[in-house]
């Protein structure tokens, strides 16, 4: 295809992507260097018949005018990145000096909003991804063993948790684990504890969110593995059987190696999707116990009467760094493959 034709074909798509993906990234990079204006203070002299006092007051008009004139805020350099709600260098150093061991240091670190969110995001990503792969493979093997007629309806039902809007799916589970909902009430009955609430405890909230994540994503890996299972050649399986491989050995040494490219694919997709975990936290109203990077950006943007654009932008930039680090092995690999093909 000629360069020129290519350009015209790709133009609409490229324009949309550069205007609304590339440009916003530039925009947040700029925004992150600025901070909201402080309110303009003026000295007001208020006189009573006996004496005059000067006091500081907010000059609402001047503040509004300043915000109007320079909506970005005032230049702050990298200050936003290093302040308490982001990388918090000073606080981290302080915690390092004061704590006696790694565990104490860790718990101090978790009091800082950014590290708290990072901890949950990474834990969520690291736990959900392998569980989804194992559970998905197990379901695929199970469904593959079903009689033909049962497969269609099974796949239909299995797709539901994945297709349903994440926020809505998490709300449904949230209502069920509510202290008065069916699962919550049953758990209280089993443990004979009226006060038991999944929402009240840190670790239970984390577990709840992670279970939701697995529930939501398992269908995806199931479908991919199930499609993959159809392509495993019968001859190889039979050959393995003739050589005396047991059922488990056949799964372990024939089926699983065939599935490896799929495992890589699912891992990649899951890492990307789990790293931006956000809706479940809103749906489960779990923000007091668990926050994610996406959630703190969301929170900055809707908080109070002044939206914290600078703060949200700084977190966004840090999140994008995280995404790039997460994807770098894949990008490097694809780049090598591509070069090999070209040569």
């Amino acid at each position: 295809m000629k360069h020129r034709t290519f350009f015209w074909f790709i133009l609409p798509s490229l324009a949309a992507m550069s205007l609304f993906i590339a440009l916003p990234v530039v925009s947040i990079a700029v925004q992150s260097l600025f901070v909201e204006h402080d309110q303009v203070m003026i000295e007001v002299e208020s006189c009573t018949p006996f004496k005059c006092e000067t006091s500081l007051a907010v000059d609402a008009e001047a503040t509004a005018a300043l915000r109007e004139e320079r909506p970005l805020g005032s230049f702050n350099g990298l200050g936003t990145y290093t302040n308490r709600s982001h990388l918090a260098f000073a606080e981290v150093a302080e915690a390092w000096r004061q704590s006696s061991g790694l565990i104490e240091f860790g718990s101090r670190l978790l009091n800082l909003p950014f590290y708290k969110a990072l901890a949950f995001t990474l834990t969520y990503t690291a736990v959900v991804t392998p569980f989804v792969i194992v559970l998905g493979l197990a379901i695929a093997l199970g469904v593959n063993a079903l009689p033909r007629i049962a497969k269609g309806p099974t796949i239909f039902v299995s797709l539901l948790p994945m297709i349903v809007t994440p926020l809505i799916g998490s709300l449904i589970l949230f209502w069920m684990v509510d202290a008065d909902g069916i699962i919550g009430a049953t758990l209280q009955l089993i443990f004979d504890n009226d006060q038991l609430s999944l929402k009240a405890s840190h670790s239970l909230t984390w577990i709840m969110l992670i279970v939701y994540g697995i529930w939501h994503s398992a269908p995806f890996s199931f479908i991919v593995f199930y499609a993959g299972l159809q392509t495993v050649p019968t001859e190889t399986l039979e050959a393995a059987q003739i050589d005396g491989a047991s059922r488990w050995q056949r799964v372990r040494h024939v089926v699983v190696p065939y599935m490896m490219p799929l495992v890589v694919f699912i891992t990649l997709m899951q890492l990307m999707d789990n790293f931006r975990v956000f809706e479940p936290i809103v749906g489960f109203s779990a923000s007091a116990k668990a926050t994610s990077l996406s959630w703190i950006i969301f929170n900055d943007l809707r908080s109070g009467d002044v939206q914290l654009f600078g703060s949200a932008a700084a977190t966004s930039i840090l999140t994008i760094f995280g995404v790039v680090i997460l994807l770098s092995p894949v990008l490097v690999r694809t780049w090598r493959d591509f070069n090999r093909k070209v040569r």
Partner: peptide, 16 residues
Amino acid sequence: VCRAMPHITLVSGYLL
């Protein structure tokens, strides 16, 4: 890379 970008990071770029 764009596919992996959390949507909310982009949103924070649009708002202002």
